Amino acid sequence: MHHPINFTPAVQPAAAPSDSVWCFAFLDGQLLLVAEASADDAEAAPAFGLPPLPQPWPEARERHYLGRLDERDCWALELAARPEQADAQWQGVALRPAMMQLPEPLMLLAGRAAQVLDWDRTHRFCGVCGTPTERLERERARRCPSCQHQAYPRLSPAMMALVWRRNPGLASGFELLLARSPGFKPGFYSALAGFVEPGESLEDCVHREVAEEVGVQVRDLHYYGSQSWPFPNSLMIAYRAEWAGGEIVPQAGEIEEAAWFDIDALPGIPPRFSISGHLIRDTVERLRQGAAGV
């Protein structure tokens, strides 16, 4: 799971800005990264990092201050054109693979930057009366000058459930229920997930989504953790749940395939980049230690 980072969110920089910055610059929806050649192995695939954007910054359609990470100011920029100082090593990378290239603190901030820019882009007009909105200076909000409606960044909560059960016929003694959606890479499976509906608790959502997606019932829910998931604006909340009954019936159009897998013979699963990757691996370890329900 993710560890806390030394980041202080803010809407405006302090009176004394830091000498150096982290700048998350997006161009045509892609995050600009720069290849960093390895000094130890010239033939190794290059790592990628955030490119330096010296002042004055290139022309930007939008600029948002995010806060301070380890005494460095952090900004999100939506650029109007490729910066003049960009060389051949600068690349525009889609958000998901870009985040996977960055160390954890910068990975999390890249997701934050993308969500702030997306919120700003999609709230240029009032959702009540259609008037162009204005950005507020001291809080992350846009206000309608006509009807005074204010729009703040919104998240869509989504539950994730990893269902497990005992199986004395297996050497490991346990198996997991994993599923794949039509858009997954061949051979890859993950935990079940779905959005919370209005008026629904997280626990109600777990029971409903599991029943809808694979037709089984669960019990003994245990909270695992959460992760901001900027694809586009979700908050993933993960649980472990014990199988309580029912046979697998994949939901048509949503679940391409679902099955029970021995914890010692899992198919391809998500990397630890996502909470599902953490959830599956950590649950397997707990099951091997006989501690899944605590």
Rank of each mutant, 00 (worst) to 15 (best):
V128E: 11
W90R: 07
F195A: 06
A16F: 03
P56I: 10
N233Y: 15
V93C: 13
P232E: 03
F26C: 06
R288T: 03
Y65M: 02
Q91K: 14
R286V: 04
P168G: 14
F7R: 08
L53D: 09
A45R: 14
L102T: 08
E104M: 09
L279V: 08
Q89T: 15
A191V: 12
V34S: 09
V218M: 06
L50R: 03
S190L: 02
L136I: 00
E175L: 06
Y239F: 15
D120F: 12
R63I: 13
R72Y: 01
W90E: 05
W22V: 00
E213I: 10
V21H: 12
P4W: 12
S276T: 06
V93Y: 11
V284A: 10
A80H: 13
T133H: 04
V34Q: 14
A86P: 05
E257N: 15
P103L: 13
I5M: 14
A35W: 10
G187D: 01
F125V: 12
R138D: 09
G290L: 08
R142L: 11
G253P: 10
C23P: 08
A88N: 04
R240Y: 00
C147T: 04
V294K: 13
P97E: 02
S190H: 07
P182R: 01
S18E: 09
Q85R: 06
W22E: 01
W57N: 05
R166N: 04
A15N: 12
T283R: 06
Q251W: 02
V116A: 10
S181M: 12
A244R: 06
W57S: 06
E134M: 02
I263R: 14
A94C: 09
A141P: 00
R82Y: 03
L69Y: 15
V11Y: 11
R112K: 04
L31R: 03
E84W: 11
I237A: 07
L162V: 03
D19R: 02
G199N: 04
T283V: 09
R165A: 02
G67S: 02
P52M: 10
E175R: 03
M107V: 00
E213S: 12
